[in-house]
Nucleic acid binder design. Sequence first.
DNA 1: CCTGAATCGTTCGTTTCGAACCGTTCTGGT
DNA 2: ACCAGAACGGTTCGAAACGAACGATTCAGG
Lengths: 177, 177
Amino acid sequence: MIAMSTPRLSDTSYAVLGLLDLFEPATPYQLKQIAQVSIFHFWSIPHTQLYTECARLAEAGLLDERREESGRRRRVYRLSAAGRKALRTWRADPNTDLYELRDPGLLKLFCGADPASLAEAQVERHERRLHSYQELLDQTDMSDGMRLSLESGIGHEREYIRFWSRLQDGRNKKALT
Amino acid sequence: MIAMSTPRLSDTSYAVLGLLDLFEPATPYQLKQIAQVSIFHFWSIPHTQLYTECARLAEAGLLDERREESGRRRRVYRLSAAGRKALRTWRADPNTDLYELRDPGLLKLFCGADPASLAEAQVERHERRLHSYQELLDQTDMSDGMRLSLESGIGHEREYIRFWSRLQDGRNKKALT
DNA sequence: CCTGAATCGTTCGTTTCGAACCGTTCTGGT
DNA sequence: ACCAGAACGGTTCGAAACGAACGATTCAGG
């Protein structure tokens, strides 16, 4: 309950709070593993950031940190009351920005790369990813939010496959610049 | 032609080279304006980075820089021969990673926000964006790559609208947590 | 046990980020 | 013509994010 230093919370901060809300208690390493099969699809973070972000949030009083005595001396985190409250407040505001995207494939396409050969590689990768999402969907039991966001990912993968497939078919076979 | 220091070129570097290839000569500010109606949709960069990136690329010998004498003393950039070559090499390799995405809306959904109220805001924003893309498509004349990447953006906006619209309809009216 | 492989956790130098600021140019009013 | 304020253009700088690399622990098999 003590009001500590309050650094700005980024969306990434809330991502960590949200993960812990579903899967606490957890170490940063476990969060990384969970994130890889859940939020990384629409909220990418380098794994090192989970360590620093947890530390920051604990510092700010939004997480409780407990450290193992022996062995790896893992730091295990839980939401504090303040953390739970911060999460609830943020979650209740439906006004959010649109996405930010970085797609190297589209960038190359824009820059004039040969569409057909780009497309071939892209279709394959997106199909692989689509399958992994679909497997996730029926293997795991998950929260509503988790299922919905995964379904969104599936929709976008399908859209990507549609888009790139169209570019695969012949006629675009000019030299690779 | 002089081989200068060669810092790693990031995809953002190539984005700048690619823009200049289509629209040279240009100042960083002009690049920003062009980017806003072209690559920002799939390759977001803060505008200040265009200034530093141009400087870096000029330093590396991939751009030619000319500075105005009077007034704003703008720096005007063109591709150098080396820059053109670097762009061509990069463009010819079809093996590219998949996208990275950061979508705060999906993040909130994942974290358990009320789907219906989130959806309402999201649908509106995505529809606005979809319209702006569609206007771009017939107003402007553009390169093949530009048109294609814009069409991809339109496809994804439609997908977003499909997804969020589904969540708009009643029954999800539980309290906003 | 011992050795190598997998797992786990963190550090640290570099790059990116974006708020904030300042100088220039434009616009309209007088 | 001149001035005030708004819009535009460009840059700086401190903070945050990034990711390569490393060191330490645990596990698996011989």
